[in-house]
Design a binder for these strands. Structure first.
Lengths: 215, 215, 215, 215
DNA sequence: ACACTCGGGACACCCCGTTACT
DNA sequence: AGTAACGGGGTGTCCCGAGTGT
């Protein structure tokens, strides 16, 4: 079993190294030599664990997907109210994007991987579904207007988050992503919250942010 | 001058071919052989017109930038009202993105080109500035609430547009981008339009879309 | 000893798999991964039994050499007349070549192995010697002319057989090798059989073939 | 045109170098680095002239085929009698095989190339057809028995020649190939020549050899 | 004794981006 | 604008041990 453990550690090191390499230069412009150097392993080890460069990219995407999905599962399990869950998830995802190279590499690869043999749309569909679930909860709880189109709204929220993250990356290297998400929620909230809950809810994003900063 | 004209045509053909090649596989994964095949010219011709692969990518980015900026100039020159101008621009940009390979390649390259020697300003700043200008007009005209943060809003609009386009590309190859933009405006409008203009304005995006389809 | 038996079986499986792999693509163009896949063992097992790829090839050559030599021993032991022994051996060898992958791989490797570190004596010398022995017997028995050059004839017979097999392989995958050997004997017999035995002997190859087919 | 000439010369140099490299180590075990070193060109030049390693091998095979076919054309054009033509061709082919690396490499590759994407049986079929033609001539001229099976005989002659050459290569590096061909003809002649021409013809191979040596 | 997992380097082949010379 | 060539990696994968079970 000691063998197994070493292999697992090696595999994780490869994914970490590959993530930071891909993140830095993009998939197509990164060579496996750079990957193996960044991971501190030889190409033999790399070839043992992954069949191809593309398989490596897919593995990173999956690892990122898993890391992100874990947030959603936790929020669901804890019974967090729908609107709060959406906001928390966006902020938590942003934190991962900023701090975890695997996650940031994963989203970059998901975009660049549009033409892989193994097509990958997974993460986005997963996020959209999760958002729909939260929206439905919010409607049930009365925090969210009953007359919105849940599918369209979920899709737009994921799109908007994606765009905020891409633009923040381009302009500030994602340093300002939290501020931009607060801006985003300020725009979106009026379309979500019914009039009778507005006063109560309008500061929710800011309150959540402060809570998180305190922790 | 016949020589000149042929040279110009060749150069344009190279840019078109390169755009569709880069669009399909990404910058790093596209070879100049593929580019020259797609353009129907020899590599010799390619190097006659462009100093390097990177220079070619930059030329595409500039061509796209120019195509997009032209939209903004036209709208400004025609004195289109602010809110309408924003919506028209988003739809027109979407159309270019869907139909003009040079534009879609330019957008993709702008993202991948983050680490070129020649840093590209990127169209994003330009779009943000244009949006600010339109927002200011809208405020002056009373179509847009006076109490919004213009900078933040402009930035968010560009981000949301970017995200909508990216996600639409991933899920449907941008075939549904117009529908998704209408969804986007449905969410954003409540935050933009003051209460006393709501009834009058709320169908504006749909109306504009119908107008454009008629043309 | 159960261990021993399993090891022997594994070793045999490796040789079989390697033979069919080498036979199909040639030594240099066959990877050990293909070998281990064809043999149904892991590369670890492979390297436990054989020191190197080359050693594996040599083992196949030896196995084939042994299989072929067994024919000669049997014929000698049974006291088969010289000319008949030559013909039987050619047909039997052809059968092995067509049906036993180890033998066909062995002869292919013998040719390709010309530049191995461990030079392979090659079965050719063995076959030539055996043929000389049979020819001497035939002369003693009066079936074969006394005035032929035994060394030259033996060498030519082996060469002709080799060529027939190579060309048959190339044109028909050795499916017609028996027919071609009958043709060969038709050409060679006049040079071997003395005039006074001609009528009696001229149908010998065909008769032997019929005998073998009946069995 | 000077360009063209240089390219042709480079291409020829690559074929020469590749031939000697393949001849020495076999197709699969020869690297393109060895080829380019032997040819004195860079790998870029190699890639410019040939699409792949396999295409290079095919080019060698074709070059050899052409060199060999030229012999046949000359003999036909000069109206050399059938039997003499067969013998001359075998000796001339042997000389090429011994002296011209392109020819010997071509023959070796033809055998090893059994599993190329572009299958190659060309040379052998060509030789067989040429032999049939010579045999028919010989029959017409009365030098060759009318009752032989021309197809079978032609095929056997080519096979026997192939085998003689292979075995001679293995045992002496083809140094004794002429002697072995004289041996071959000694065995084959009785099956070819009708009784009434025997005395006149039986020394033909030796006479031809002496003629050639004198030239 | 036998077998396998895991990893190490070294190339092989391909072909890439680029330059000289027309 | 095009032909011919250049070197230098890129990816893949090869052949082969070291370490660990069974």
């Amino acid at each position: 079993m000691a063998q197994q453990e070493r292999a697992i550690e090696t595999r994780a090191a490869i994914i970490r190294g590959a993530a930071s390499a891909f993140e830095a230069r993009g998939y197509g412009s990164t060579s496996l030599a750079q990957v193996s150097a960044a991971a501190g392993v030889t190409k033999g080890a790399l070839y043992f664990h992954f069949d191809s460069k593309e398989a490596l990219a897919v593995a990173i995407i999956n690892a990122q997907h898993e890391a992100s999905a874990a947030i959603g599962r936790t929020l669901l399990a804890e019974g967090v109210p729908g609107l709060r869950a959406l906001i928390v998830m966006s902020l938590e995802l942003a934190r991962q994007l900023h701090e975890d190279p695997i996650v940031s590499a994963g989203v970059r690869l998901t975009i660049e991987a549009a033409n892989f043999d193994t097509p990958v749309a997974g993460p986005y569909l997963g996020w959209i579904e999760a958002s729909e679930e939260y929206l439905r909860r919010g409607v049930a709880e009365g925090e969210i207007s009953a007359d919105i189109d849940i599918c369209a709204m979920a899709r737009f929220l994921v799109s908007a988050f994606t765009g905020v993250q891409v633009v923040s990356d381009m302009l500030t290297g994602r340093d300002d992503i939290e501020d931009r998400l607060i801006d985003m929620w300020a725009v979106v909230m009026p379309a979500l919250v019914p009039g009778d809950r507005w006063l109560e809810m309008k500061d929710l994003p800011t309150r959540i942010r402060v809570e998180r900063a305190a922790a």
